[in-house]
Every structure is written in structure tokens, then in C-alpha cells.
């Protein structure tokens, strides 16, 4: 089996879109219920968009405790390509698998519109077939997409080539107008230090057919499938390309936490 798993949380609403988009590309894809703890045999994993657990407390805050997330963390550490889209990105940040956090848009509104993003690095499974600098048109649909990380963490992300996508204009330049939600450094997507866990706010699965206004999402999903299959290796079960475990992004969040003013007693 060379299937990509699409995790379904209570409140996910882009899971069927992801499964359909992958089928359009001829990729094998299976839904993975959030109570599942067995991810064996999958070549990649998508955490789709939606409103898991109603976005209560903070987007992604409760989904990160779903049983499947421990398995996701284990597999991510082993090197499995994991893509979080929109709410999936928020969940990966809350889980500490990606650095930073996603805050309400500066506009205060839910924003649903096509945007341009620039591919900043080809070192991730979703951008492996893109030249850095490539401009893609993808739709966004979110209320909490403003990427935030403390200054030191942002500098670290830039230095370690962990910024995967940046909001730009059609000419590929980041401008204040081309940043739809107020994300710091115009960040639309990031990866962990190893590059195998990626989160992005735009929806590639909604850009796979001319009738949807763009087919640029195909590039990313097709690359994910291709890299996943070669990572897992044909016919193997355990994964040929296992990488050294590291918890880099967790460290980043821990650094941020160390600077927090939490824990004071309020009288």
C-alpha cells in the first residue's frame, strides 16, 4: 500500500476535499479516524482544514490531544512526511510539532480568497519539485491565520530555511497588501528543522482543477505523494529513510514558553 492518510477530526471539513484531490492526481488516499493510533503503511499524512472541536479555546488546541496525535508525533519523528493544511497547521503548532502559533487575522474577519504564495525552499516533501521563487495561486479560508513567533524564533526559522511559503503579490514580491492576515514575515507556511513536517494556511487541495480557478495545488500534493513513496521505499513496511529523531520545533516553543509570564498567582 502506498496510501496517503487524511486524518479526520470531529469538525474537520476539508478531509473529503483532500481525498478527492489526491484521487484526481491518481494517488491512493485513505481517511484516518482521529481515534486511530496505527499509522503503519502510510507514505504520508495530511491533517486537513476545518474546525476541529469547534475551534474552542484556540484553533487546534483540543485536537492535539486526540489519540491519533501521539502516533503522528512518533511517525513525524521517524521522518514520515506530514502536511497540515489550515486547521491542520494550527493543530501541528499547538502540538509543538511546528514552531509558532496562529492568531486571529488582523482584519478580524474570516477571509476566503485566492492569494499568491512564493515557494521559499525546495527541501520539503511538498515543495520538492518546485524551484524556490515559484509563485503559486492558492485559496485561503481562515479566521486565525496570522503566523506569530517570538523574534528570536523567527530569526531562527529564517536562518534554518524553515519558512516554506510567503504571501506575495502576483509578481512574487511580499508587500503589505499581499499579506492577507498580518502574518509576521508574511509567513504562509513553515516546516520543522528536518523539513518533513509542513504546515500551511492556503489550501492546495482546493486548487487541483481548472474549474476551481487554479491547478497549482497539484504540484504540492503530487510532490508529497512522490516523496512519501520514495521515503517509505517500495514494498517496505518500516521505512528505509528513517532519520535521526529530533525535537527541534518543540525546543523553539519551549524557548518561547521559558519567556512567558505565566504561573503568577493572581490576587
Amino acid at each position: 500500500m502506498n496510501a496517503i492518510g487524511v486524518v479526520v477530526f470531529p469538525g474537520s471539513n476539508c478531509d473529503q476535499d483532500c481525498l478527492w484531490a489526491l484521487s484526481v492526481l491518481g494517488a491512493e488516499a485513505v481517511p484516518v479516524w482521529h481515534e486511530s493510533t496505527d499509522l503503519s503503511g502510510l507514505v504520508a499524512l495530511i491533517l486537513p482544514g476545518g474546525f476541529s472541536y469547534g475551534d474552542y479555546l484556540r484553533a487546534g488546541a483540543i485536537a492535539r490531544f486526540s489519540p491519533v496525535m501521539q502516533a503522528v508525533a512518533r511517525q513525524a519523528e521517524a521522518g514520515l512526511p506530514v502536511l497540515g493544511i489550515c486547521n491542520g497547521f494550527q493543530i501541528l503548532c499547538e502540538a509543538g510539532l511546528l514552531p509558532g502559533a496562529l492568531l486571529p487575522n488582523v482584519s478580524g474577519r474570516f477571509q476566503c480568497e485566492p492569494v499568491h504564495v512564493r515557494v521559499e525552499t525546495a527541501r520539503t516533501p511538498v515543495t520538492a519539485t518546485c524551484e524556490p521563487g515559484t509563485v503559486l495561486q492558492l485559496p485561503i479560508a481562515h479566521a486565525q491565520g496570522r503566523y506569530f513567533a517570538p523574534d528570536a524564533a523567527l530569526a531562527d526559522l529564517e536562518a534554518r530555511e524553515q519558512v516554506v511559503f510567503r504571501y506575495v503579490n502576483a509578481a512574487g514580491e511580499p508587500t503589505p497588501e499581499s499579506n492577507p492576515n498580518g502574518s509576521l514575515h508574511a509567513i504562509a507556511g513553515v516546516c520543522n528543522r528536518e523539513g518533513n513536517v509542513i504546515g500551511m494556511m492556503p489550501h492546495p487541495e482546493r486548487a487541483v482543477h481548472p474549474q476551481l480557478g487554479s491547478t497549482d495545488g497539484r504540484l504540492l500534493l503530487a510532490a508529497l505523494q512522490k516523496v512519501g513513496v520514495s521515503w517509505r521505499g517500495p514494498g517496505t513496511d518500516g521505512g528505509g529513510g528513517q532519520r535521526a529523531p529530533a525535537a527541534a520545533s518543540v525546543e523553539l516553543n519551549a524557548q518561547a514558553a521559558a519567556g512567558s509570564g505565566g504561573g503568577r498567582q493572581w490576587q
Binding site: 479555546l57 503548532c93 516553543n253 514558553a257 509570564g261 505565566g262 498567582q265 490576587q267
Partner: peptide, 24 residues
């Protein structure tokens, strides 16, 4: 009780990346 509340804040109620918390 205080130790449990502190744990709840760290684990779930607040996100230390961008939030701070106080409890009583």
C-alpha cells in the same frame, strides 16, 4: 489544587507561545 491548575494552564488552557496566564 494549585499544582493541578498550573499543569492545566501549561498543557491546555494557555499557549505559552503567545499567551500569558494568571490564576486564583
Amino acid at each position: 489544587a494549585e499544582s493541578q491548575v498550573e499543569g492545566m494552564c501549561r498543557q491546555l488552557l494557555a499557549n505559552p507561545v503567545m499567551e500569558q496566564y494568571e490564576w486564583k
